[in-house]
Each structure stands twice: as structure tokens, then as C-alpha cells.
Design a protein around this nucleic acid. Structure first.
Lengths: 362, 362
DNA sequence: TTTGGTTATGAGACCGGTCTCAAATAGGAT
DNA sequence: ATCCTATTTGAGACCGGTCTCATAACCAAA
């Protein structure tokens, strides 16, 4: 494989020669460290301009040990939740003169591992990860132990004590579900994109992705509070963008005992559900109510507009990035776990349970 | 600023010492080049495993001159168009073992320039750019001349002869507009997020971002074909996510001579328009028709669902990335300009022009 | 055994920066 | 003029890899 004819780049030595000073001196002015006399500085600068010198960041990182960039591993950039969070991260990073290397895990641990390996090899100064599955966190523990600052976004890991920024998932789910229970719903389905190996069986300790677990806990809290039995059976995993997801959703809706309300864990799932509801000829909110996490742009323009749990997504990203930046500036206070508040934006997708109406009529 | 206590990393020399061979030999097996005897290879590998050796990509890039990553500069990752394209790019890149450093320009040339400077300094092997404004392309020309492979995404630059992947914007706009003219519309507004310094005045040579110009050209073609005069006056720039954009849109809709149909240049603009139409109490498609570029997910769930120009966005990204990868593998055939086909997905947002109906009634 | 042609290994230069250390120069005080 | 300290400069090591080149070891043919 031939090297394409790349223009040989100008180095410090070239500039030094041109300015008739030593390499060390030229490096001092170009690198902005040490002390140099005014006259020499001017000469070097002029030579650099004349030669159109551009520093080679790689070489610089090589010696300093810091690369000036952080790695970000998210589940899926296509998900507006992540693209907004990434926006927050890169805005915050840019403010500190740090840039972002992005990697997609596609929510798969293997891809996540590989991405992290690559990023570490590239000597990123820090890492922001949205852990795909929290059963396997050895690779993350390793990162943390290696001394590379690591921060977690949206999903906390109980066993990994690093800077973490999440939202008050449990409380949010609780409040969202309450809206449904107060409207008389007793058959409420909870749909999440998260995958669970094996069966849930109401054993929440099996879910170790915090956001997923917390939400389910909040959901169950509200159900219990409303005296709803066996709510665990209405929790459905793997409702993401996967191939079989539409089928699953349809099956759920076609069931005679179908839920009268659905809580969706993210806007992608919700969109899927929304479409499925339409295709089944059901009406929102008369036949079925819908609430989703994430105030995605489309949720306000549907008919009816959807009630959502509004997470401060951009702030979430901005916040982790700031935490991480602080960390790699040398801050070494104990890891922080920041939980951001959510609000519920009530729109028109929640109605009285048809069960209640039915009972009232006869 | 202290260096955080980073674990000193294992180097080739360490492994060599452990395996009792020379640094050169260890490097050969670890780097996978040159010839090494089986026994020695095994010994080195074992030592590497024992020491948990991880190569330092930076150092490797330093000597090889290639960093194994490409830079991508897009206008705004939040825009689903770009996040999908980026997905295509990173999927294609990953297939070639190349990773992606992402930068947001926010559609601003200065940010774009700075991002490119940083990426070049980081020695990216190639660059994919969605040029924010094509008036200023000096920095891009410079990149191309420096021998760094450059590819353009979605927006061609007439004066920059590099690999470019776009869609058949002119034709797409022509066909979309035709749908409107055939429905009897004569006052058709075209809204684009692109900014234009100064007035348009029907002088399309002033627009040098190809996608914007081509679409406008297609729009005007269709208008001319339908015998519509002064269509130029209905082209509105700067309808993006800017602060004043809602105001602009409302002003447009409140005007007595308001358009009876609107063609939006991207889904973000379209969403803005959709909301504004609602807020003005107008109905789609009875009062006003709407077509937009990009089949964003929400366009199919609104009431009514929106007719869209479906661009192969993912493929677009995949394609540029492949082109670029080919280039940095040494391919040096002349730059290619690929134009991908679009299709129009007709949904329910286009109706007969109310003007026609009005004429018919009395 | 000698010769010749691989094949395996080691020594060390190199990439383009940073940074230590010592020498050189400058300026001020005596 | 002399001595002392402070500043400016240069020489060269170093980071962690790659890669050239020379030497060493090997095996087979003569």
C-alpha cells in the first residue's frame, strides 16, 4: 500500500533553521512554554509564518501523554436522545479546547469493549460511556483502574464508583405511572428497549442497568400504590429498534387483555408503539393512553400530542463532560453521582381508562 | 497542572526485556511486520499477555504518519439528517478499521475552519465535510492541496474538485414542486435553513452551496413550467433553528397573500413550519399543503402524515466514507461526484389549492 | 568442509514534538 | 573592573513505536 503523495510537513527544526536558532528555542516559542527573548520570539514567529508551520498534535501528545481529546461511547447516535446528549458533550468539550472522538456501540457489549479498546489505544484523556449492558463491566472497571478518567452518562453502575450523571428515573417513572393510575388504568404496559437475558420474573436485581431498573422500580411503586397486582408481567424488554420489535408490539396490542395504557422508555420505542397503535386501529387516548420518556420533537406534533417525561438531555451531556473535564484537569475529589430532575409535560395522550367507562355505562 | 496518577504503560521494550529478546524483535511480532521464528513469536506473545501490553496508537501513528482515523465535520448532529449520515459514515469506517472524530460546525464557517485545523493537526488520514458556506472555501482548498484526502457530503462545491456525494437535489425539488403545481398551487413558499448574505433577487449564482442552489433551481423550474411568475420572491432563507425563525414563519403565514403550499428544505425547518401552521389555526392540507425534504421519523405520524422527499441519507454517509477509505488506501483515480436518487413518498399533506376551490364555488 | 543463499535477530536511527540541564550572555551591585 | 545572580540559549535525551541495515545463525548444495 503506497503512501499517497502527502506534502512533507514543516517541523520545529525547519522553523528553527529558518530563524537561525536552536530547535529547543524554536520549540519554546512555538509550544508556548519556557522563556524566550522578544527579538528571538519575533524571528521564530516570522519564520513559522513564512514556512506555514503547523504543529503535529500527535507528536505533542506523544511526549506530553495527553491527547487533548476524550472518547464518547453511546448506544446509538441515531437516537435523538443520544444525539442531543452528544451535542451537550461536544459543546462543553469545545469550551475547554478538547475534542470528541465518537463511537457507536449499537448497544452491544462487544462493540462497546472494542470501541473502548481503540479509544484507550488512541490515548484519549478521558472516556464518557453509556454502558450497554451492566452485567459485563469488567472492561469499564479496568479503564477506571488504569487511571483514565471515566464518566457514565444516563446509566449508573452500582458497582462502579465513578462520576455519573443520570436523571431521577425512579421518581420520573413513578410520577408518569401515577398519571396513568389516577386515570383509572390498571393494565399498564411498560416497554423498554433494554434487553434482558432470560426472564424477568419480577426480580429487579437481575437488571443492573440503573436507568432501566430505576424506571421499572418507579413503575412498580406506582402500581403497588394503586393496588395493581402482578404489574411485573406487563413489563416488556427488547422493544427497541430491533427487527422483531414491531411484531412484539402488535402482539401486545392484539391481545384481548391488552393494556389500556403504555409507558415507553424512550422516544424510539414510543414512535414504534404509536405507529402500531394506529395500525391496530386504536385511538389515543380513548382506547389506549401513552406516555413516553424523552420529549422528542415529534411528540408535540402528533394527534394527539404525547405526554412525556422531559429529561434535560442536553444538560445531561454538558454536565458529564464538565465533570470529566474537571477530572482531567487534576481534580480528585471522590466521584460524584449527579441526578438531574425531570418534569412531566402533560399533553393529550392520556385519557380515562376504557375499563372504568365500560363499568360506568351498564 | 499535575498529571493524574496514570499507570505507566507497558511498552515494547518492557515486553522485549521480559521475553529476553531485542526491542526490534518484540516490535516485529507485536506490530505484525517482518519475519520472526515461531518460538520467539510465542515467547513474545506470552510476555505481552503476562504484562498486559497494549500498543500506543499515538506512537504508532507518529512514525507511520497515518492515524487510522478520519475527521467528520457536519453542520449539526442534532439534525436527524446528519446523525443518520454520520451513522452511515461510522459504520462504513468501522468496517475498514478506521474510526471517526466528529466535529460540529453549527453551520458556521469559523467553527468549521477551526474544527478542520484541529483535525488536521491530529493527523486525521482524511476528512469528510459538509461545507457550511461555500463562499469561503479557501480552507478546504488548502486541505485538498495539502494532499489530505477530502470528501464532500450532501453539498458539492463547484470550484472544489474532490470526491463528492450528493442527491439529485434539483430533480427532487422539481418533482416535489410539480406535485404542488399540479394540485393547482401558484403561491408556493420555499423555506431553507441556509443563510444568504444580502438579498437573493432571483440571482441563483449568489448561492454557491450546491444543494441549496440546485433545489431552488428545481423549484423555479417547476414554477416556470407551471407558468408561475415571480416565484423567486417566495424563497425564504434562514428558516433554520435560529431564534428568529419562528417569527419569520409566522409572518409568512399571517400574510394575506400567504402561500397555499410550502416546500421545506429539511425536516427541522418542516417541523417548525408544521407547528407554526397549527398555531395559526390553519389546516393541512385544506388550507395549506406541505412537502419537506428528508423522511424524518415524525413525518409519518402527524395528522396528516407529511409528503416527503426521501433521501438515502444512510447510504449517502456510507458512500462518502467508502469513497474516502478507498482514497486513503491509495486509489488515485480522478475525483468522483456521485449523485444519489431520491424518491418522493406521497402521504396526505398535499391538497388542492384553496384558490382553485374558491374560484370554483362562486 | 567450504560456499552460498536464505532466514532470524539485534543495534540504532528516526518520527516531531517536550523538557532537563548546563553553558553563555546580560545586567546590576559593589 | 569584578563578582553575582537572572535570563536566554543550545545540546541532547526522551516518549513508544517503526524500520533499515548489518550481523548471526541456519540449512542445503557442492
Amino acid at each position: 500500500m503506497k503512501r499517497p503523495p502527502k506534502a512533507p510537513s514543516i517541523t520545529v527544526s525547519d522553523v528553527a533553521r529558518q530563524a537561525k536558532v536552536s530547535k529547543a528555542t524554536a520549540a519554546r516559542v512555538l509550544g508556548g512554554y519556557g522563556r524566550v527573548s522578544k527579538t528571538v520570539r519575533a524571528a521564530v514567529l516570522e519564520a513559522a509564518k513564512a514556512l506555514d508551520y503547523r504543529p503535529n498534535e500527535l507528536a505533542r501528545s506523544m511526549t506530553t501523554g495527553r491527547s487533548g481529546s476524550i472518547g464518547v461511547v453511546v448506544g446509538d447516535i441515531e437516537n435523538p436522545f443520544f444525539s442531543l446528549a452528544v451535542r451537550g458533550i461536544s459543546d462543553a468539550a469545545r469550551l475547554s479546547g478538547i475534542n470528541v472522538i465518537l463511537a457507536n456501540s449499537g448497544e452491544q457489549v462487544e462493540a462497546e469493549k472494542s470501541a473502548i479498546r481503540v479509544l484507550m489505544a488512541k490515548q484519549v484523556d478521558g472516556l464518557i460511556v453509556t454502558p450497554a449492558q451492566s452485567g459485563e463491566i469488567a472492561h469499564l472497571v479496568e479503564v477506571a483502574q488504569s487511571g483514565c478518567p471515566l464518566a457514565l452518562l444516563d446509566r449508573a453502575l452500582p458497582d462502579l464508583d465513578v462520576d455519573t450523571v443520570t436523571v431521577d428515573d425512579r421518581d420520573a417513572a413513578l410520577r408518569a405511572t401515577r398519571i396513568l393510575t389516577r386515570a383509572g388504568h390498571t393494565r399498564i404496559g411498560y416497554l423498554t428497549a433494554a434487553e434482558l437475558s432470560g426472564d424477568f420474573c419480577g426480580n429487579e436485581s437481575r437488571i443492573n442497568t440503573s436507568s432501566v431498573r430505576e424506571r421499572i422500580l418507579g413503575f412498580l411503586d406506582a402500581c403497588r400504590e394503586a393496588g395493581i397486582e402482578g404489574a411485573e408481567r406487563n413489563i416488556h424488554f427488547g422493544a427497541g429498534r430491533s427487527d422483531r420489535s414491531p411484531a412484539v408490539t402488535h402482539a401486545l396490542l392484539d391481545h384481548p387483555e391488552r393494556p389500556t395504557a403504555i409507558l415507553a422508555s424512550d422516544s424510539v420505542v414510543a414512535l414504534e408503539v404509536f405507529k402500531a397503535i394506529r395500525e391496530c386501529g386504536l385511538r389515543i387516548p380513548q382506547d389506549i393512553s401513552l406516555i413516553t420518556f424523552h420529549d422528542a420533537d415529534w411528540t408535540s406534533v402528533t394527534t394527539p400530542p404525547i405526554t412525556v417525561v422531559d429529561q434535560p438531555v442536553y444538560a445531561l451531556g454538558k454536565c458529564v463532560a464538565e465533570l470529566l473535564v474537571r477530572r482531567l484537569k487534576g481534580d480528585d475529589r471522590p466521584p460524584e453521582r449527579i441526578v438531574m430532575p425531570t418534569t412531566i409535560i402533560e399533553r393529550m395522550s392520556v385519557g380515562q381508562s376504557p375499563d372504568i367507562l365500560q363499568q360506568a355505562v351498564p
